[in-house]
């Protein structure tokens, strides 16, 4: 009985922390909106909220990273986006989180490398989806987006490491 109670308490704590992180992600989305990165090249975003997924992955919580990232994408599409933007960000979000979750197991890569790979995959998937919607022409945009993915990914990975040093999440 007591173990079941403890289990329940743990689950509630988990839910509360995930919800907190999810709302933090949405605030990050707004902060990102204030930084005019799309002036450098159209469509480029920092993706600060992915640092939360990196934070969870550093803690070894793959399920949590998926839960927070996917609910963050759904919520921000509901609040600010359109069905189209949901399709783009959901596909890219799922694939990049999956890649990060696999790569974090590699001892050779630090979270920065994992985040770089995730960022590049995210952009590649978006171009892939866009090629169905807009046409083959968008593939020409991939090289620029890949460089952006490497730079933003490194920054986000570093941010994730900083977060993991500051915030102790234990269940």
């Amino acid at each position: 009985m007591s173990s079941k109670q403890g289990n329940n308490r743990n689950r509630i704590k988990r839910l509360a922390i995930y919800s907190l992180l999810c709302s933090l992600c949405i605030v990050f989305g707004y902060v990102e909106f204030l930084i005019p990165t799309s002036l450098i090249a159209p469509g480029i975003k920092l993706g600060i909220s992915n640092s939360i997924a990196i934070l969870l992955l550093i803690n070894g919580d793959i399920g949590g990273a998926f839960a927070v990232n996917i609910s963050r994408i759904l919520l921000s599409a509901l609040l600010f986006g359109s069905p189209f933007s949901l399709l783009f960000s959901l596909c890219a979000g799922i694939v990049s989180t999956l890649v990060c979750a696999l790569l974090i197991k590699l001892p050779a890569l630090s979270p920065i490398g994992v985040s770089v790979a995730g960022g590049v995959c995210h952009n590649a998937v978006q171009v892939f989806v866009a090629s169905f919607v807009v046409g083959r022409g968008v593939w020409f945009y991939l090289p620029i987006l890949t460089v952006a993915g490497v730079i933003c990914g490194a920054a986000i990975g570093f941010l994730g490491i900083v977060f993991s040093k500051k915030a102790k999440i234990d269940f």
């Binding site: 050779a108 890569l109 630090s110 490398g113 490497v150």
Partner: peptide
Amino acid sequence: MKILKKTDVILSISLILISVLGFF
């Protein structure tokens, strides 16, 4: 935990090189 490992640098640089090549 080391912040940046050799593999990270290799991965990043090779991705940038590939995209520069792709651009050309």
